[in-house]
């Protein structure tokens, strides 16, 4: 038996919004540690990894590890039936083929129960080594979203150059070129507005904007985004979900031929 309850459906709705354009199907792994998901997009260029820790739930019961195979589009559609303020319970029997989603209004006057058919999915899982990165940039998530969107008007790729004290995001295309320089904040009152740039060694890498724009669908989950970059390894774009976990995206770089 698996059963968990979150005080606000909003966070799970936003998480589904962050995933559904990138992946069509996925498996939620349920264990005593919480819910987790890892899936590559169909082209095997990017990967999303979600962790929602037990401690962030109101209640969490998992008698036995289970895998819930879901169609993301279906799950997102059902989640949209919840109001943001509703509390939400997810429930599944150990060998069941249904996931129950129960939404309860804050005043307790309305309870909606949906049952979603689960799928038997065999999804490739990749081993992602823990590693130190050459550079880590933290910046307002809305600013990163804006940069990715704006540079998409110029080209298909963004070149990210990190040096001490700042980052250049640049794009080239048939119509022209663009360069956006973001400087590390010297003094900020609000942590959410801060830009921090940690540099162990400067890096310069190129990534497809198409995928970065998919990743920025997670913007409503967190005021800040972190970009971890090292030469010749996938970029990590991470959004922390307060008190609950994270959504992390990995994107393989483009290499000069």
């Amino acid at each position: 038996m698996f059963e968990c309850r979150l005080p606000k459906a909003e966070v799970l709705k936003k998480t589904m919004d962050a995933l559904k354009d990138l992946i069509k199907e996925a498996v939620w792994d349920v264990s005593a540690q919480g819910l987790s998901l890892q899936s590559m997009d169909s082209s095997h260029v990017s990967l999303v990894q979600v962790t929602l820790r037990t401690e962030g739930f109101d209640t969490f019961r998992c008698d036995k590890n289970i895998a819930l195979g879901v169609n993301m589009d279906t799950m997102q559609k059902l989640m949209k039936c919840a109001s943001n303020d509703d509390n939400i319970t997810l429930k599944s029997e150990d060998n069941g083929d249904l996931l129950s989603l129960i939404f309860e209004s804050p005043n307790g006057e309305k309870t909606s129960e949906y049952e979603m058919k689960l799928m038997d999915l065999d999804i490739e899982q990749l081993g992602i080594p823990d590693q130190e990165y050459s550079c880590t940039i933290k910046m307002p998530s809305g600013e990163f979203q804006r940069i990715c969107r704006d540079l998409s008007n110029i080209g298909e790729s963004v070149n990210i150059t990190v040096v001490k004290g700042g980052v250049d995001f640049s794009a080239k295309g048939d119509i022209g070129n663009a360069k956006i320089h973001v400087t590390e904040s010297s003094n900020v009152d609000n942590e959410k507005d801060a830009v921090t740039v940690e540099v162990n060694e400067p890096v310069n890498l190129t990534f497809a904007l198409r995928y970065l724009n998919f990743f920025t669908k997670a913007t409503p989950l967190s005021g800040q985004v972190s970009l971890s970059i090292s030469p010749d390894v996938p970029l990590v774009v991470a959004y922390e979900i307060e008190d609950l976990g994270h959504v992390k995206y990995f994107l393989a770089p483009k290499i000069e031929n």
Binding site: V45, L47, L126, G127, P129, P234, A252, K254, I255, E256
Partner: peptide
Amino acid sequence: IACQQGLFHYFSET
């Protein structure tokens, strides 16, 4: 021309 790498180039299947 920049060529898109795949994730299998960096991570292996578990």
